[in-house]
Design a protein around this nucleic acid. Structure first.
Lengths: 220, 220
DNA sequence: TCTCTAATTTAGGCATGCCTAAACTTTCGA
DNA sequence: TCGAAAGTTTAGGCATGCCTAAATTAGAGA
């Protein structure tokens, strides 16, 4: 069995670099809240276990074995998030931290039960795809909201779950994945966006708009 | 925060000695699957943290602070067991091992949600009382089945969850807490018991009967 | 090309929680 | 009452995963 630390590192590598790219030690350390020196040590261990390839000063990349573990943990994480929202009524801005703990203790049996209870879902509450047992993942058009031109009608694809505060605000606006809304104006000089959701106008900061991903409403 | 090891030790002390009695180092080590030497080291740490009192060669007992943690963990464990059975359909002989992991990662918020979803229950799936938030626990008559005389009608109060095999067998007989049945005969020389459940007769080994607790049907 | 800075690695250390082996108490039966 | 068995503690060690401080390397700009 992998330890929790191993799982956390592999998941972090996947989230930062994907299945193929490399990620630097410092970026990894930053993501995990440890010092770069600690990350170097752990990376060496992971390389020894055959979960990553490591070239000095050039960062790390997942091996197939490492990718499998990362996807398994990510699957746990996203299934648990969806379960907490759908079956236990936890607000979507609070599920990330809970799932962060649960992902490491979820047995295969319970994973299957949750999956079945949720109807074998493809996306988590934030719109991120849930890796399937076979390692595949659904994909969907996801354009950062800041790239959208004024006057366009769009549908929310995904909201980054890295900031609970942002999620709460976006949730208050009703902008959950699948919701359609109109981009009314984009204020110049990196100013805020005005959007209209369900007849009501709201303002979204340019910074926040980097973390909201949408697709054109026509593509539905 | 307490570590998982601390929580496991305090829970073990509570289960072996209750809130007031002492338990020996070896019994503790045995329960936890570690060597007596390891238990001694940990016990010293717990004493330093103020969770147990420790007298050389005389065993350990919980302090009020230690008892509070033990009860909190036990509450988590039993709530999770009941949740898994009632809400996720996990067989009662499998929930113990799952709960063993979950009890350490359950937040207060989710504890409350589970408690509410289950209607603030007093007993877990095996009939063991669930500690309440205020530290109190429901109590119920629980006589070992071996002490019952032939010809008595009884109701299952509790089945020990220490052995998954036993639980599976008892479950097959339908002897869940609350079920009434008749003790027909007790074979001599520590022989098996014959019981009648719902019109069908079954045999229960004397050994197993030590782990099944009942109350007279009249007391209902 | 050289140099400076940022990123990375090495070196040495610490806390946790486990282990074995050996020494020490306690207790109980002869 | 004495000695052996059972229980307990001490001593020394190991793996994990984190830390700080110092040394090293890569890469970009002058």
């Amino acid at each position: 069995m992998s330890t929790q630390a191993v799982e956390d590192y592999l998941k972090a590598v996947y989230e930062l670099a994907g299945a193929d790219d490399r990620v630097g030690t410092s970026a990894l350390a930053d993501k995990l809240g440890v010092t770069p020196a600690s990350a170097t040590g752990m990376v060496k261990k992971l390389a020894g276990l055959g979960f990553v390839t490591h070239e000095k000063y050039q960062g790390v990349a997942l091996t197939p074995a490492g990718r499998d573990i990362a996807l398994e943990i990510l699957r746990h994480h996203r299934l648990v998030e969806l379960y907490l929202v759908k079956k236990m009524g936890v607000p979507w801005d609070q599920v990330h931290d809970e799932a962060e703990k649960w992902e490491h203790v979820l047995s295969e049996d319970l994973e299957d039960r949750m999956d079945a209870m949720l109807g074998h879902p493809s996306f988590d509450p934030h719109g991120a795809p849930i890796p399937q047992r076979d390692g595949t993942m659904a994909s969907r058009v996801r354009i950062p909201l800041v790239k959208i031109e004024a006057g366009t009608r769009v549908i929310v694809s995904e909201v980054s779950d890295h900031d609970s505060e942002l999620l709460r605000y976006v949730g208050e606006l009703g902008l959950f994945p699948g919701t359609a809304f109109d981009v009314i104006t984009l204020a110049p000089y990196n100013g805020p966006l005005t959007v209209e959701v369900d007849g009501a106008q709201h303002v979204i900061g340019r910074e926040a708009a980097h973390y909201i991903f949408v697709r054109p409403a026509e593509s539905e």
